[in-house]
Amino acid sequence: MTPVIHSHPSRKHSPPLDRTRYRVECFIHDLKRFRSAATRYDNTATSYLAVLHVASMLLWLR
């Protein structure tokens, strides 16, 4: 996966920014703040998916 990083505003020639991929990267970064989602302490895939859904809803509501 190629990282998508905002270039510094003072840079003369900034590379093009894919805003969709940048938003996904920011979302994944915010999602990793939830410890149970980042460390995968859940035993089953369904409970892990439930944690991801709850964390996504909390991020969406803020």
Rank of each mutant, 00 (worst) to 15 (best):
M1Y: 04
M1Q: 01
T2I: 11
T2G: 05
P3K: 15
P3A: 15
P3H: 15
I5Y: 09
I5A: 04
H6T: 06
H6D: 02
H6M: 11
S7Q: 10
S7D: 10
H8Y: 12
H8K: 12
H8S: 04
H8N: 11
P9W: 11
P9S: 03
P9A: 00
S10G: 02
S10Q: 03
R11Q: 07
R11P: 00
K12H: 06
H13R: 14
H13F: 10
S14M: 09
P15Y: 02
P16F: 09
P16L: 07
L17T: 08
L17H: 07
L17N: 04
L17Y: 01
L17F: 01
D18Q: 13
D18K: 09
R19F: 06
R19S: 04
T20K: 14
R21G: 00
Y22A: 14
Y22N: 01
Y22L: 15
R23L: 13
C26V: 14
C26K: 12
C26H: 04
F27L: 13
I28Q: 10
I28A: 12
I28L: 12
D30H: 12
L31T: 12
K32R: 15
R33D: 13
R33A: 13
F34K: 04
S36L: 04
S36C: 02
A37M: 05
A37L: 07
A38G: 00
T39N: 08
T39H: 05
T39E: 14
R40Y: 08
Y41H: 06
Y41L: 06
D42W: 04
N43C: 08
N43R: 07
N43M: 09
T44F: 07
T46W: 13
T46V: 14
S47W: 02
Y48M: 15
Y48R: 14
Y48K: 03
Y48P: 00
L49N: 13
L49K: 09
A50C: 10
A50S: 11
V51S: 10
V51M: 00
V51Q: 04
L52Y: 06
L52N: 04
L52Q: 08
L52I: 11
H53Q: 11
V54K: 15
V54P: 03
A55R: 12
A55S: 15
S56V: 00
S56C: 15
S56A: 15
S56H: 05
M57H: 11
L58D: 07
L59K: 14
L59V: 07
L59A: 04
L61E: 08
L61T: 08
R62Y: 05
